[in-house]
Amino acid sequence: MISAILSLTVLGLVLGFGLGFAAKMFAVATDARVAEIEALMPGTNCGQCGYPGCPGAAAAIAAGEATVTICPPGGKALAAALAARLGVAADLSGVSDAGPKIATIAEEICIGCCRCIKECPTDAIVGAAKQIHAVMREACTGCGNCIDRCPTEAVKMQPVPVTLQHWVWPKPQAEAAWA
């Protein structure tokens, strides 16, 4: 009885110290910024950036492998927020916020197969079996995951129409000399 208790205690102590030592010695340094960056990102894991979802992209941005402008759904706002967080100068001129695209469904060729619905990361597509589907414009992030799933090519990416409410004065030209 005593020997059993003793042997298990000793075993526990040895293994515990061993694990503690290994945790300190062979620790893999993680970047605390990754979690913060991930919190800023859209979180839809759409994959438009080419990385495996938002966590992958966040890790790449923190590691400096990716620029802050890689997220198309995030647009300029996200790029600016990331640049401010990381303290880097972002070249926002390359980010095209003027032409974000959203998915649209051609109603005359939609067969109501429900395949695109399952792909949408934000549940922006509504519809049911053998019913025409529709995209809710406000919820679509333009990730394009639904495009390849459509058997009849009814889903197309189209630029968001510019309305009076969304129109922005263009930046004045000239003054290149001093600006």
């Binding site: 859209p42 979180g43 839809t44 894991n45 759904p73 995030g74 647009g75 300029k76 706002a77 996200l78 600016a80 927020a81 916020d97 949408c120 990361p121 934000t122 549940d123 922006a124 406000e138 919820a139 992030t141 969304h166 129109w167 922005v168 004065w169 263009p170 930046k171 004045p172």
Partner: peptide, 27 residues
Amino acid sequence: NHAKGELAAQGRAQLRNESAKRLAAAR
């Protein structure tokens, strides 16, 4: 006027981002 429009557009994009995040989490 250009800057105010850009800031408003960025604000809208921010709201859109947040709502996309909410929708994705809900899904």
